[in-house]
Each structure stands twice: as structure tokens, then as C-alpha cells.
Amino acid sequence: MSKIIDVQNLQMKFGKEEALKDVSFTVEKGEIFGFLGPSGSGKTTTIKILTAQLTHSSGKASVFQQNAADMNQMENKQKIGILTDNSGLYGRLSIEENLLLYCNLYELPKSAMDEALQFVNLQNERKKKVNNLSKGMTQRVILARTIMHKPKLLFLDEPTSALDPVNTKHIYKGLRKLNELGTTIFLTTHDMSEAETLCDRVAFLHKGEIREIGDPAMLKKKYSDHSFTVELTDGEKHVLLNGQEDAQRLFNWMSTQQVERINTNEPSLGDIFVQLTGSDL
């Protein structure tokens, strides 16, 4: 596996304010990497540094084994796709006209536009004027534009924040498919379940520092207290731990057919985040 993104001791200061304190992480080729953190934790700042839209104060930021500041060069711009709050659309143009511009800028065949529209489930809305679209539809059009050239590396800054569950699901499916075709995805979100369903690895960012990093299943194991909750037929709930004593209790309930269900008490990513930072998302 090779490192697509390599960030070491990254620091970003805006005047006196330290938006990023000492951030280090890597993203491997083919991964879906989730960058999780509350508002103001430095997610967008990180994306902007990695895409040459901001110059960091100190530390190392490299993408495709090159300095991140070089991502504004032509060959690199062809390889990356970026969706941030800086990604706007032309309001007086239709969805199709907006995409057509980028189809030409990336020198793609027209079929790329149709594929992108299908990706965001907007084939039948293509003639609609962007000014008349809902927030979620606008976001989907921007997403379509971002993935149209099938970038090797995709930066998505809260891609589903304005979407309803049905379209979110559709986008997830599309992103997974893109990923299977070889696109590495760097995704920021404060939606923990999004991270859980989508990401191979996640990093928790809090106040400009990474507090934990790893694959969601591993993290859940790591922060689990290894207890189970047993619900009995009479509705009573008991928390059990591994061990002789609780094993006997469980054995007794089971032999008398009193067990309704057993759940593991794995923490959600959200729980882990609260545990680590003491603050909610």
C-alpha cells in the first residue's frame, strides 16, 4: 500500500489563533478516510491545506508524494476532486449547463456528464435551473461536478450535510462504487453513523488535535467495556461481564428460557468521541 496523503506535525495559525496544533496522519491508497470533528475543529482548514488553497504554518503536508502546495498544478488538478463550502454553482444556468462547463474544462466526453447525473440521481432534473433547486439538490449537483472526472483522490467536506436519508443512501452507494473503482476518499463529517457505515479508518479531530485514529470496528473494541446487556422475558435488563459468576446467571436464565435478547455494549463512534474529548459533536 502506498501513502496518498501524508501529514506530519501539521500546524496552522490564523494570526494568534491555532486552528491546527500538531496534526499527523496518513491516508493509504484505496481508503475511505473519515475526518471527524465538531464545528471549528479544523476539518475544512486541513482540506484547504491539502488542496493548495491555504499555506500551512509549519509541518509537512504531502499528497501523491508531492508537496501539498503543488496540488494547484495542472497534472494534479486532473487527479483530485474537491467539494467544500467554496464550491458554488451558476444560479442562472441549468444543472446540465453547469456540468457541461466542467465537462469541457476537464476535456471529458459528454457521457461523463450523464454518468455523474446518474451518480447523484438527478437524470430527470437535468434541465432545472440551479436557482430553483433545494439545498440538498444543489449539494448533489456539486457532488456530481466533483466526481465527474473520476478523480484518483476525492476531498469531500461534509458531502451529505443537507441530504435526506434516501439520497444519502444513494450517495453512499455511489461513493463505495467509486472507491471500488480505485478512488481514495478523504471525507469530513460530524455525522458519526456516516463515518461508521462508510469509512475504512477514521480520525477524531478536536480543537486542532487528533485524539484517536483507527478503523471503526477496532476502535469500538478498544473502547468497549466488554459487557453485554441481557433482556429477560419479563422486561428486566441486566448488564453482564465475562466471568464465572455472570456466566452462571446467564446459564440459569437460558435454561429456564427467560432470555429475550442479548446485546453487546459496544460504544458508538459518537460515544468514543465523547469519552475522549468530554464534549459532544
Partner: peptide, 14 residues
């Protein structure tokens, strides 16, 4: 104003 200039700049257009 529309936040479209940055996207143009990030596209392969020189």
C-alpha cells in the same frame, strides 16, 4: 460572490 471562482481555479483550466 457565488463561490464559483475557486472551483474554476481548482479545475484544470489555466
Amino acid at each position: 460572490e457565488r463561490n464559483t471562482l475557486r472551483s474554476l481555479m481548482m479545475s484544470p483550466a489555466s
